[in-house]
């Protein structure tokens, strides 16, 4: 079965070498049959990155994916607190560069109005946005989005294609929160491989809205892949989750860049 990974970080595997880091990530993923890797963020993570930090991290991604054009897709990392810098990076890395998606992390909750110009530009470029979300029992970071925040953003931008990263971590709450937001897919990476996750996602959202990812290298490819291959869902659903849905989600951006999809 073909497997594409929505959610990877690579830059810390071989410190100081983005290309070798990505090479190592791909080598490990290939052991489990993973063929394509969406990668974002570099080595120096900050909750509220400066424009310079954003550029540096995105440069690391650009350098790495340039060495593996057939296997890796880059997403540009933005900080909605600085709209101008974010739009500049979006234009540099996506409109004028090879990246095919947007990554938003924890700088600002995604229901904030600052997101609007970024989402509008993403719609113009026909690229999707991956938004990290969590619902932590002990409380989120100040700028950390919840799935409900993303549902709010999705309602404001029905033409945007959004991914609810981590499904909020607490999948039973996350799935419920985005259920009625048809332009939101869930990314099931980066939480424990708790049994029942994928079954509930397919039951409540349909297999078409579920996308597999690993959140490697922090997470194990294996632990995350187990969420799908161990789930009591049929093979057609597995195929969608592991590959087809992501391929379709990326298709407009890939097509715009003349990439073979």
């Amino acid at each position: 079965m073909t497997i594409w990974d929505l959610h990877c970080h690579f830059a810390r595997l071989v410190p100081g070498s983005p290309v070798k880091s990505l090479e190592r990530l791909i080598e490990i993923g290939n052991r489990l049959g993973i063929e394509k890797f969406c990668v974002y963020m570099g080595s120096n993570w900050e909750y509220d990155p400066s424009p310079e930090n954003l550029r540096n991290q995105n440069d690391e991604v650009l350098e790495a994916i340039g060495a593996f054009p057939g296997q890796a897709f880059g997403f540009v990392y933005l900080n909605p607190k600085d709209v101008e810098a974010s739009l500049d990076e979006l234009n540099r890395c996506v409109a004028d560069g090879p990246m095919v998606g947007i990554k938003l992390w924890v700088a600002q909750r995604c229901n904030h109005r600052n997101l609007d110009p970024i989402v509008e530009r993403a719609v113009e470029l026909d690229v999707g946005i991956f938004q990290h979300t969590w619902l932590k029992a002990g409380g989120n970071l100040p700028g950390e989005s919840t799935p409900a925040d993303l549902a709010e953003l999705a309602d404001r931008h029905p033409d945007a294609r959004l991914i609810c990263g981590h499904t909020g971590g607490d999948f039973e709450l996350g799935i419920r929160a985005v259920k009625h937001s048809p332009n939101v897919h869930i990314g099931i990476a980066g939480s424990d491989p708790t049994a029942g996750f994928t079954e509930m996602a397919v039951r409540e959202l349909g297999a078409d809205r579920v996308i597999w990812g690993s959140d490697a290298s922090g997470r194990s490819f294996a632990s995350q892949l187990g969420k799908v291959v161990g789930a009591q869902v049929d093979e057609a659903a597995q195929e969608k989750i592991l590959h087809t849905n992501l391929r379709q989600w990326l298709a407009p951006a890939l097509k715009a860049k003349g990439r073979d999809i």
Binding site: I28, F221, S223, Q224, G226, G230
Partner: peptide, 18 residues
């Protein structure tokens, strides 16, 4: 950690590492 975790998550770790 089955049945709390998917059993395959641990099993695949034997393949993920050399």
């Amino acid at each position: 950690h089955a049945p709390f975790f998917y059993f395959e998550s641990a099993l695949l770790k034997l393949k993920e590492s050399l």
